[in-house]
Amino acid sequence: MSIPHGRRSSWLPARYLIGLPGKVIAIPYELGNGRVWGRHVGDTTFLRAWLGHPDFHMIK
């Protein structure tokens, strides 16, 4: 995944994607203040690995 130069702080979640199995697609979008953020869509293999990742937290 390519992280745009100068916008790395907006793409910090990308560090969690590197090294996880499965397929994931990043969908970037611009916020109203000119920053870029992104959402991710992954397959079941990726989701299973992410749910087991020590940094995964679900807010109840």
Rank of each mutant, 00 (worst) to 15 (best):
M1L: 14
M1V: 15
S2W: 11
S2R: 11
I3G: 08
P4T: 13
P4K: 09
G6P: 11
G6R: 07
G6E: 02
G6V: 10
R7W: 04
R7M: 07
R7H: 15
R8N: 08
S10I: 05
S10P: 00
W11K: 05
L12W: 01
P13T: 15
P13Y: 15
A14C: 07
R15T: 12
Y16G: 08
Y16V: 14
Y16P: 05
Y16R: 03
Y16D: 06
I18W: 15
G19I: 02
L20W: 01
P21M: 09
G22S: 09
K23T: 03
K23C: 11
V24Q: 02
V24I: 01
V24F: 00
V24D: 00
I25C: 04
A26M: 11
A26Y: 12
A26S: 03
I27G: 02
I27L: 07
P28F: 06
P28E: 05
E30W: 10
E30Q: 05
L31C: 05
L31H: 14
L31N: 11
G32M: 03
G32Y: 12
G32V: 13
N33Y: 07
N33I: 13
G34F: 09
R35D: 13
V36D: 05
G38K: 06
G38Y: 15
G38C: 12
R39T: 13
V41D: 00
V41S: 02
G42A: 10
G42F: 07
G42H: 01
T44Y: 09
T44E: 01
T44Q: 03
F46D: 09
F46M: 01
F46L: 04
L47E: 00
L47A: 02
A49H: 09
A49V: 05
A49F: 10
A49P: 02
A49C: 09
L51T: 15
L51P: 02
G52H: 06
H53W: 13
H53D: 10
H53G: 05
H53R: 07
P54V: 03
P54C: 01
D55C: 13
D55P: 08
M58G: 01
M58K: 13
M58D: 09
I59L: 12
K60E: 08
